[in-house]
Each structure stands twice: as C-alpha cells, then as structure tokens.
C-alpha cells in the first residue's frame, strides 16, 4: 500500500506540474483587463471579451485557417512519404540504405536556426516566401526524419512471416502491404501523424522568418503581433484567449486518433 501511495503522490505531482501553467492561461483568458494583474487564480470578474476580441480580428481567424491548413497538408505528405521510406528501410536491403538513414538522422540533428537565413533568401528568390508551400516544404523536411524513425520502429515490430504468409496465400506484394501490413501499422501511422502535426502546429521559428503578411502567417506568429486596444494596454488577455483556442485542435486531434492507437494490436500473430 505505501508503495502505491508513493506512486500516487508522484503522479499527482507530475500532473500538477504540467497542468497549472495551462490553467493559469485559461484563468487569464477569462479575466477583465482591470483584474488581469490582481494575482487571483480564479477570476473575480468573468468575461468572454477576450475571446470576442480575437475572433473579431481577421488577423487571428486568418492565421487559424493558415495553421490548420499548413499543418494538415504537411502531416499528410510527411506521413505518406515516411511510411513508404520506413517500410523500405525496415524490410528491404537496397544499396544506399545506410546513407539514407544517416542523412535523415543528420537532418534531424541540424540546428534549424542556422537554416533560417539561407531559406529566407532561397524562398524570396523562388517566390515561395510568404506562401503556404513556403512553410509546408521546410516542415516536411524536418518532420520526415521523425516520421521515418517512429514508423520504422513500428514496421520492425510486425513479424515478417505475416508478409510471407500473405504471399503464400496468393497476395501480390501490393495486396500483402495493403491488406495485412498497413492495418497492423495503423497505430504507428497515427502516432506519427500526431507527433508531426504537433511539430508543425507549434513551430514559431520558420513561421516568423518565412512569412510577412497574414496570407500565410500561422497562429503562433499572429499571437506575437497582437496589440492592445491602445498602445498603453498590454494584450495579455487576448493572447491568453488565443493560446487557449489553439490548444483545442491539438486536443481534438489527439482524442480522435487515440482510439486507434490500440496497444498490442499485433499480439496473437505469432507464438507467445
């Protein structure tokens, strides 16, 4: 019992540590400008003004659309490419395999900030600057190593015998992948999709460097451009409200896919 209690306390501590800052933001987003700095955790005066403000500005709504669009497209492309690459890496022996794995690891290790200036220049020359593809491309580049690594770990867990069995049962390579391997890899694909989506959604560095107008500005950047009603007013309340709003898609995304991440989906395939 004491052991259980100890773990319970530890768990509670971790949860509190993670959730207090979030609740704080939520609390701020419901406070009026006057009571913003009163130091109370529970607002004394509740208001929805902050939320009204952000949805009245085109700037935020437009940024939200940009964020959702850019993150979804990047996730889709990265996961599709990553699935194919990871399958090849975990199943096939082809020349240059070591090089491919090495290069993707190298990309993952590359400090992103060092690429911002060259990317800025390249994108301005090629006309990609301040467009959706201008953000989608670098996101895919940096999300791919993540996708490949997560997915190849999942593919390696799937017993190879299953594929051989499918071939013996009369399946072509494509049918074996589609009807046997892909359903089993689904939890891995969804996990990867969540990770990639969060990576794209949260990015600030590329978004602020490679955009200049609200045409392609994403939410994290739009937040930094928020201004108060007057120049003497701090937009803390509005920023908090926006921060709360942009966590909602992530929560929805995770909840939606979580159902599909059933651990132990491959159990029973082989002995044991």
């Amino acid at each position: 019992m004491p052991v259980k209690l100890k773990w319970g306390l530890l768990d509670a501590l971790v949860v509190v540590f993670a959730i207090v800052p979030v609740l704080w933001i939520v609390s701020l987003s419901f406070k009026t400008t006057a009571t913003l700095t009163d130091g109370n955790f529970i607002p004394r005066e509740w208001t929805l003004d902050n939320y009204r403000t952000i949805f009245q500005t085109d700037q935020f709504v437009r940024a939200l659309v940009n964020s959702i669009g850019i993150a979804l497209i990047s996730t889709l492309i990265a996961v599709v490419l990553g699935t194919m690459a990871a399958y090849a890496i975990s199943r096939l022996d082809f020349p240059g395999k070591g090089l491919l794995v090495g290069v993707s690891l190298l990309i993952a290790m590359f400090p992103q900030v060092s690429l911002v200036s060259p990317l800025f220049n390249i994108e301005r020359q090629t006309g990609l600057f301040d467009t959706w593809p201008g953000l989608i491309l670098p996101y895919i580049t940096f999300a791919l190593p993540l996708a490949i690594y997560t997915l190849s770990a999942f593919f390696k867990q799937i017993p190879w015998d299953l594929e051989k069995a499918a071939k013996m049962d009369g399946a072509t390579q494509g049918e074996a992948f589609r009807r046997v391997i892909a359903p089993l890899a689904a939890p891995g694909v969804f996990t990867t999709a969540i990770l990639v989506f969060i990576f794209c959604w949260n990015d600030f560095l590329f978004a602020i460097s490679l955009t200049s107008t609200e045409q392609s500005r994403t939410v994290p950047v739009a937040l930094s451009f928020f201004t108060g009603a007057s120049q003497f007013e701090d937009p803390t309340g509005a920023i908090s409200a926006a921060a709360v709003v942009i966590t909602i898609p992530i929560i929805l995304f995770v909840l939606f896919f979580q159902k599909r991440i059933v651990a132990g989906l491959t159990s029973g395939a082989v002995k044991g």
Binding site: D161, K164, K167, A269, K271
Partner: peptide
Amino acid sequence: APKDRDIAMVFQSYALYPN
C-alpha cells in the same frame, strides 16, 4: 511468384493475421 505456384505453407510462428 509464390502466389502463382499454388502451394500453401504453415509457418513455425503460425503467422496468423492478428487483425
């Protein structure tokens, strides 16, 4: 290809489709 040989195989690991 294996699928055109019309032979069936039983694997040591059974290789059942878990889904």
